[in-house]
Amino acid sequence: MQEFFQLPVFGVFISIIAFAGARELRKKFNYALLTPVLVAIVFIIGFLLIFNIDYEHYNRGGRYISFFLGPSVVALGVFFYEKYEEVKQHLKVFLLSVTLGGITGILTVIIFLFLLKVPGFIIESLAAKSVTTPIAIEITKLTGGIPEITAGIVIAVGIFGNAFGPFILKKLGIKSKIAIGTALGTAAHGIGTARAFEESKLAGVYSGLAMCVNGIITALITPYLLELFLGLVS
């Protein structure tokens, strides 16, 4: 049996089945914490632990799935082009919002983790925690952190933004749908964007674009901010 689990087809199959099942579950029970990606990951980890399968063996197939992250990031460029026309009229304030929000997201998490005495490799893994998972993973590969830690926390950030983002923003006096959408995309990437579309289509479009723009900004400056900050304090 263990030999079967080492075949690449096992990792591919369980990933697809877990994801499809989790999506069906979400259709039946519309509850924020039942985000398909979280359910699928928890299910697969549970399965691997119960049957005593190494992550390495699962990932022999899993890596064929994650390979598609590369072309997916390129596809985000197409999405950005398509929606670009819709935000053109508010472009300046939109870019200002995403840029300042993006820089705030990187700086505050680096500073807080540092003050709480968390080891450097975790800080390197979490500096890009606000951006979409495939981009965050690439940033972490460059900064020397651990991509798997990045992926886990980035997904958690998205779920947090999805579940509580609009509530927090409304409590803080934000009324504009454009503001809520942009903030969700900047701070909580694609999983936050899914929630923004539930607020309104306009909020969703701004959120999706904010996710792309912050992905680029964060990719450009995170290595330098980390170097600057960790260089200053060491």
Binding site: G105, L126, V157, A179
Partner: peptide, 22 residues
């Protein structure tokens, strides 16, 4: 510490980004 730092940072990011447009 990870939860505290990540949640605080996310809330601040949400607010900064939203308040500029608001």
């Amino acid at each position: 510490p990870i939860s505290v730092a990540v949640i605080a940072s996310t809330v601040i990011t949400l607010y900064i980004s939203a308040i500029i447009i608001e």
